[in-house]
Amino acid sequence: MKSIIAVTSFLFSILFTSPSWALSAVEYKNLADGISSDEMIVYESTGKLRHITVFTDIDCGYCRKLHSEVPALNASGVDVRYVAYPRAGIGSDSFKKYVSVYCADNPKKALTNAKMGMLLKPADCDNPVEENYRFGKRLAVNGTPMIVIDDGSVVSGYLSARKLLRRMKVGYVSPPKGSEMFPKVAATRISPEQYLIINEAHLYTRPDTRMQSMGTMQPDVVHKFSLEIEIDGERWLGFRKGGSQYYTQANNLRLIPSVATQSIKSKKYAAVRPTALYISPDKSAKKMADMPARSYFRFNLEVRNENGRWLGFSRNGIKYYAPAADLEEI
């Protein structure tokens, strides 16, 4: 860590006379170039024409987006040199993740996995994360990613590989196939169908239980799924929301059979006796709510099957049914 300490001492001499925002391009260049390569995680290019130094946070969305551009930057001859800057501070979860990255057998692969959302095995060893973070604070890194180009110019925030290369006056080269940092999930689109959650279901951005859980779905909730994939003999179902994909194990779900319903004029019906609402016109289906005697709903669907006549309605994309024999029009 001697180089970080030396750079920090140099930085103090600069900051003593001028605020961080007044640093010149030459000063930024000298500071970034003064960091030893063994105190960074470096994704090297083949041509080694240029390099950028990036202050990055594992849990920063735009840092992940920039990381997905690394293959294109490398293919275009630009080394990407990462300096750890966990924005939440020393001792935070992001800080601990970065320590585990540095202490992994393959830090580059571990960093990619961590940025993808995979849970890493906690590890501790001699590492530069705290010094990196303090260095970034003194350099007034207020947001991530902060990119120091090798000419000393600074980009605060994300730029696509094409725009960054254009700014560096470097030609864009398409990365080779299979070099993606975050390989796409080859899920199959299926006809959207409703499923009942039967066990607490964790949601992941990839069909892999090693990923960080992005939320849970509690039992007796109905949700629509439109993606399917099988991995190592295990079936997963997924859906898209807000530009992201979410998956859960199919054994946590039960398909709600589609029912051929007939639309009828919407009318109010009251329960003549205590009855229930089901998610399928079948009393063996999951009961979703009780209807006390004289309580009512407006029904506009009708089903006739081996279980008799049923009335139903749709709410928030979910259909509910009650036995018509338990209802009377009001």
Rank of each mutant, 00 (worst) to 15 (best):
A6T: 08
R87A: 03
P71I: 07
S160T: 12
G34F: 00
N106G: 04
M40C: 11
A161F: 11
D105S: 15
K286E: 02
P274T: 14
K287P: 07
R254Q: 07
A88K: 13
S266V: 02
G143E: 06
V7K: 02
Y320A: 06
V7A: 14
I279A: 06
V78L: 09
P257V: 06
G117E: 08
R298Q: 08
V26F: 04
T209L: 08
S153T: 03
R64M: 09
K108M: 09
L31S: 04
A22C: 06
R235T: 15
S174A: 13
S18W: 01
G89R: 11
Y296S: 15
V26Y: 02
A84Y: 02
R64Y: 08
H51N: 13
D105M: 08
G317C: 12
H223T: 08
V129S: 05
V70D: 05
I35V: 14
M288R: 15
N113C: 04
P107C: 14
Y133W: 02
G157T: 03
I52G: 05
G308L: 12
Y28D: 04
M1I: 10
T17V: 09
K267C: 06
V148Q: 06
S314P: 13
A276H: 14
T209S: 14
A201S: 15
N316L: 11
A84F: 05
F313A: 10
V7I: 12
N300I: 02
L11V: 01
K2Y: 04
G61N: 08
K65Q: 10
S191H: 09
K287D: 00
S258F: 00
F95C: 01
T188S: 14
T205L: 12
R235M: 14
I231Y: 00
V80D: 07
R294L: 12
S153C: 01
Q218C: 01
P323G: 05
N132G: 03
P323Q: 06
G215Y: 00
P19R: 15
G143K: 03
V7L: 08
G77M: 09
G47N: 10
I190Q: 10
W236D: 06
S280W: 09
R235Q: 13
S174W: 05
F299S: 03
I256Q: 07
M1Y: 08
Q212L: 11
A114M: 10
T261D: 05
A114W: 12
L49Y: 14
P86Y: 01
R206W: 00
R294N: 07
P175V: 03
N307T: 15
V154N: 01
E234R: 13
E228Y: 12
G77C: 08
P19A: 15
P257Y: 11
T112E: 03
Y133Q: 01
I52D: 03
A260C: 02
L23K: 00
S174M: 09
D150T: 10
N252D: 07
L49W: 06
M211K: 09
V101C: 07
L196M: 13
T112G: 02
Y102F: 15
L255Q: 10
P323C: 07
D57Y: 05
T248H: 11
D93C: 02
N251V: 14
L164W: 05
L203D: 13
T144W: 14
K177C: 01
L73H: 07
G91S: 06
I279T: 12
R235N: 12
I231C: 04
S18I: 07
E228K: 13
D126H: 10
I198L: 04
